[in-house]
């Protein structure tokens, strides 16, 4: 049993953490692609940046460095790494009594690192190592979550946030690549395919399954349906389902709660989908995003902002 407000904060810590990590990786791949003078990959990265933040300009007028700066350090921006980590920490501060010191210290350290006055310099002088450092610290944070927090309700809410955000982000990235003709055209280039896999942190696991033979179709299949890769949409929804099933519903009511049913439905859909039947991945990707939004709403209705009159003791 935990306070509804606490569950809410933990869930958002998970979401913000995942958001920060994705943005770091996106910036990193974009900057490396500029070095390689791979224009198609840079274009995909620009489109992906635009997809997660409308304010980002998708045209060539803004340099990749500026976009990366906005993605990482802009503190007015609703979604930069700095804001995501600041909010994750603010949420953690509000539930400081519910998370372990090890977890808190990791997050606090990350926050101090990205908000320090030297962050600007570190990003412009050595973006790769700066971003790599943040990603590594985020992994340490998640490790501390797994290794030091009890695997009970709080942990489940935090991971629920991580996986829901991840499913949405990967679906959005795939939509950029497969949603329209322009995206599919960009993806014909081999180096761009590699770049997209790296944006999803999927390159090495992909190579093990499909070898270095990269095809857009395999890429889509891997990131959407792979059962074992922790960043595929299917894997993420499967975890969401597990965590939601593990959370006791209101008053210990029997059967699955509504969010658990929605997650199970989405996860079954991805599990039994057939690659050959997907003529328009765009529709499937959109419905993944919509389903995730409904699951988010259902989590709120069930666990956080439920109407009081239904829950008063008899």
């Amino acid at each position: 049993m935990m306070l509804a407000r606490v569950a809410d904060s933990l869930y958002w810590i998970g979401r913000y953490i995942e958001r920060a990590e994705h943005r770091c990786r996106l910036s990193d791949v974009m900057l490396t692609s500029t070095l390689d003078q791979n224009d198609a990959a840079v274009a995909v990265a620009r489109r992906a940046a635009h997809a997660i933040d409308e304010a980002q300009v998708a045209t060539d007028q803004v340099s990749a460095q500026d976009i990366a700066h906005r993605l990482v350090l802009d503190d007015d921006d609703r979604g930069s790494v700095v804001t995501a980590l600041s909010r994750a920490r603010e949420n953690a501060r509000q539930v400081r009594d519910q998370i372990t010191s090890e977890t808190w210290e990791r997050l606090n350290m990350l926050y101090l690192r990205v908000t320090s006055p030297s962050a600007e310099r570190a990003l412009s002088r050595g973006a790769a190592s700066f971003l790599h450092g943040i990603i590594a610290d985020l992994h340490l944070f998640k490790g501390a979550v797994d290794a030091t927090m009890s695997h009970g309700q709080g942990w489940r809410f935090l991971l629920l946030g991580v996986y829901l955000e991840r499913a949405q982000l990967i679906a959005r990235l795939l939509k950029v690549c497969f949603g329209d003709v322009a995206g599919r055209a960009l993806l014909e280039d081999h180096a761009t395919q590699i770049a997209v896999l790296r944006m999803a942190c999927a390159l090495e696991p992909y190579l093990r399954v499909y070898t270095a033979e990269v095809r857009p179709r395999y890429l889509l299949e891997f990131l959407l349906f792979d059962e074992e890769f922790p960043r595929s949409v299917r894997f993420s929804t499967q975890r969401m389902e597990d965590h939601l099933t593990g959370l006791a519903g209101p008053g210990g009511a029997p059967g699955r709660s509504r969010p658990a049913r929605l997650a199970a439905r989405l996860s079954a859909r991805l599990e039994f989908a057939d690659m050959d039947e997907i003529f328009a991945p765009s529709a499937l990707l959109s419905s993944v995003a919509e389903e995730c939004a409904s699951i988010h709403d259902a989590i709120y209705e069930t666990f956080v902002s439920y109407p009081l009159e239904q829950r008063l003791p008899a």
């Binding site: 306070l3 309700q153 003791p313």
Partner: peptide, 11 residues
């Protein structure tokens, strides 16, 4: 006095 928890109200 109750508090709002994820499982409903607790005394």
């Amino acid at each position: 006095v109750h508090m709002r928890t994820t499982e409903g109200l607790q005394r």
